[in-house]
Amino acid sequence: MAYSIVGVGSSWGGLAAMSKLLGALPANFSLPIVVVQHRSRDSDRLLAEILQDATDLTVSEIEDKEPLTPGTVHIAPANYHVLIDDGFLSLSLEEPVRFSRPSIDVMLSSAADTYGPEAIGVVLTGANEDGAQGLSDIVKRGGCALVQDPRTAEIAIMPHAAVKAVPSAEVLPLEGLAPRLIALSRKRAKVRARKAV
């Protein structure tokens, strides 16, 4: 079973980190990427434009029921949660989680619920603890967890919380994340023993 999706979350300091990460991925990267970057309620499409300037991948600000597309960076719009469904994305105005909407936890948990061992979750720099729960859900369901090394993060709180919640997560310096994602995208996921029902 190969990986099917990458979910990436970032907060404070995320714009620079996300630009660097996405900028190091090739245009033919084979997985869809869903990005939640915390942002103000009223912010517009500028984030998508900035990230588009940084990467060869196609950047798209998510519209409801948008299909997941390989090599596309699907960005959570301001003030909506993003839920990963089977092959597409749904938006929701459910209440903020840990004061955040979009919430990294909501996005990553839905990746875990839908894609299980085929999901990769990545947590980058940030000044809160969003993402830790979602990353933990991904690992519980057999998926793969990557965390930016807190020592290379502009603000270490978020990656710290992620590592604390998921001690088995791979901790990599920012510049190590893209090569690892490329390798994972080519690799077959660990074969999970099928449990007898």
Binding site: K140, C144, T152, S168, E170
Partner: peptide, 25 residues
């Protein structure tokens, strides 16, 4: 700065009641 890259399996946690059975769910 260099950080040792662990190739360890990422699914160390025990699957709990939320183990992945999407079809049954």
């Amino acid at each position: 700065m260099a950080v040792p890259v662990a190739e360890a399996p990422s699914s160390g946690a025990e699957p709990d009641r939320q183990s992945f059975k999407p079809d049954l769910e």
